[in-house]
């Protein structure tokens, strides 16, 4: 079976660069178009490509369902947690100014952390949705209920 040779090799070449591009968009939200949501989608695209080329089972082995669930929950936790921390420090919910000693720096830090949470959640949810739809009609993991 050598039909899929080309795509197998080229996907291997491209996947690391797609991941890097996702992280680039994640961290440069202040400077260009982008931010957590887009970055999460790009990051997930790398896993989708992996699943398309090497099969869903291999992709599930690389990134098991418990990681995906942890990613979804952790991302929301980071987002909400930042807001709550801001409240504890005396500001409003998601009021970043109080996170550091001077407001602009605090806002940078706050946006950075919140975007990270958004990116993590979006990437995990995208991968989860793809796995759920692609696995439709296949064996459904009973344990995961």
């Amino acid at each position: 079976m050598s039909h899929h040779l080309v795509i197998r090799v080229i996907a291997k070449l491209l996947i690391p660069f797609i991941l890097l591009f996702g992280l680039y968009v994640q961290f440069h939200g202040d400077f260009g178009p982008g931010g957590g949501f887009q970055a999460g989608v790009i990051f997930a695209v790398a896993f989708v490509l992996y699943a398309l080329v090497y099969g869903l089972d291999n992709a599930r082995r690389i990134i098991p369902d418990r990681y995906i669930r942890a990613g979804i929950a952790l991302g929301v936790l980071i987002f909400a947690g930042t807001g709550v921390v801001a409240m504890f420090l005396g500001g409003n919910y998601l009021d970043y100014s109080v996170l550091a000693h001077d407001p602009p720096h605090g806002q940078h830090l706050g946006i950075f952390v919140v975007e990270f949470g958004v990116g993590l959640t979006v990437a995990s949810v995208m991968v989860a949705i793809f796995f759920a739809f692609a696995g439709r009609g296949h064996k459904i993991d009973e344990k995961e209920g």
Binding site: I15, P16, L19, L20, L23, F27, Y50, I62
Partner: peptide, 15 residues
């Protein structure tokens, strides 16, 4: 970021 990507790539066996 590069470190994260290399770790994921090693896990995916794409290197």
């Amino acid at each position: 970021s590069c470190a994260i990507v290399v770790v994921i790539a090693l896990r995916m066996e794409v290197i």
